[in-house]
């Protein structure tokens, strides 16, 4: 493999902030909302245990708090989904997420150690897949790209494994 060490020129590179990120799709938004609703449902059911206490108001207060948090979450969630996206460059892949604390994470292909395709019961119901990309980092060691169709997930997996096999960076 020939070794190259070109001079760094920021003008010829598309910075991660200027990349065209591929959005995760409408089905993912629905799946995400269903999963979040289920979590709140479980929390609200668990809060009913507070009825065992002397006053019923503890339970009412917690349920109101949870309901308020649920509404706020549901308002923010679609915006967060719209912001999420992934992009591939010649040597690395980036994933963007977070609406209050936006973050972009980039992992070079040659640092990828494992690629996995996952499904949980909710995403299975919607026919969606998550691609997990494990690297050797101590922190941020897993990037998960959720809300992908089977074809896209397989395509990303094939793309990454091909890059790994050919030692491409």
């Amino acid at each position: 493999m020939s070794y190259t060490n070109f001079q760094f020129n920021p003008e010829v590179i598309t910075p991660v902030d200027d990349l065209q990120y591929t959005p995760l799709g409408g089905k993912y938004r629905t799946a995400y909302m269903v999963a979040t609703s289920l979590v709140y449902l479980v929390l609200m059911a668990a809060a009913l245990l507070l009825l065992c206490l002397d006053s019923v108001w503890y339970c009412v207060a917690v349920e109101i708090l949870l309901a308020a948090a649920f509404i706020i979450n549901m308002v923010i969630l679609p915006k967060a989904v719209v912001y999420k996206g992934y992009a591939f460059r010649e040597h690395d892949l980036s994933y963007r997420s977070g609406i209050i604390f936006p973050k972009t994470i980039t992992v070079p292909y040659r640092k990828v150690q494992q690629v996995s395709v996952k499904q949980n019961p909710v995403t299975k119901f919607f026919g969606l897949y998550t691609v997990g990309i494990a690297n050797g980092a101590q922190n941020m060691s897993m990037i998960s790209i959720p809300g992908l169709t089977r074809e896209t997930a397989e395509m990303i997996k094939a793309w990454l494994t091909d890059k790994l096999r050919n030692g491409h960076d």
Binding site: K103, T106, K111, A137, S141, I143
Partner: peptide, 9 residues
């Protein structure tokens, strides 16, 4: 191995 950029509100 990996780089991340984070912004605050």
């Amino acid at each position: 191995e990996v780089v991340r950029k984070t912004c605050t509100p």
